[in-house]
């Protein structure tokens, strides 16, 4: 008989979520930096440990969340997120405050998510993208938070991803912000970052 109870979240919600947030904040403030983060010990598959930690650090009843098909079809994932965050899962990604994508092939064009308005550019989606590897082999990044330039790459790469990031950059101050949740690490690509092929 399988247990219906959701698996454990943070062992110590107050301190663990603070630690996770500081990693996210540092990543967002320093695009291209890859920060270590252990994440949740046993999240329900296919939700990864770091994406799960980011989710319950930032999501709650105020944040409608869109999940890609591989996550949305898992009752364990939906149950776990509902239990630990209380966030509503919605089907309309244009109204999502957060989106979690476990299978990069299922990533919609990112500027179809909420990009905010010129008056309220903060009313936009933060995309949490699960990746299997983060490295410095990708495009050259410049912009706020980067001294000189940095490079960031990851796998697996969704189709047209860097072209869409360039389009996203052109929308500034509107746009989507991306958190890349890797294995025991994370990085971020805020809308202010310009990515150019090397």
């Amino acid at each position: 008989m399988t247990s219906l109870a959701p698996s454990m979240g943070f062992a110590n919600p107050v301190f663990d979520s603070q630690q996770c947030f500081r990693a996210i904040m540092d990543a967002m403030a320093r695009p291209g930096h890859i920060l270590p983060l252990d994440g949740i010990a046993e999240p329900p598959a296919p939700l990864g440990p770091v994406a799960a930690a980011v989710a319950i650090t930032l999501f709650d009843q105020d944040t409608p969340v869109w999940l890609d098909q591989s996550l949305a079809e898992s009752p364990a994932v939906c149950g776990w997120l509902a239990f630990h965050s209380g966030a509503r899962v919605i089907a309309d990604f244009a109204n999502a405050r957060f989106a979690v994508v476990a299978d990069p092939a299922q990533l919609p064009p990112i500027t179809l998510f909420a990009v905010g308005s010129d008056r309220y550019p903060d009313r936009s989606t933060t995309l949490v993208l699960q990746v299997t590897a983060l490295n410095d082999h990708g495009p050259r990044l410049t912009g706020p938070g980067i001294a000189g330039s940095a490079r960031l790459g990851f796998e697996p790469l969704p189709p047209n991803f860097w072209d869409e990031i360039t389009h996203n950059y052109a929308l500034f101050p509107r746009g989507v912000d991306v958190i890349l949740a890797g294995p025991q690490c994370l990085a971020a690509l805020p809308r202010s970052t310009l990515a150019e092929a090397v």
């Binding site: 301190f15 603070q18 650090t57 550019p121 912000d177 202010s192």
Partner: peptide, 30 residues
Amino acid sequence: YNFAFLDEQTKRMIRRAILKAIAIPGYQVP
């Protein structure tokens, strides 16, 4: 008190605002 006075839901709300503020340098996030 909860650690650092604020309740966790308030911290999450402020943390989300901080992330958007960093992503849009100089823009005032309500």
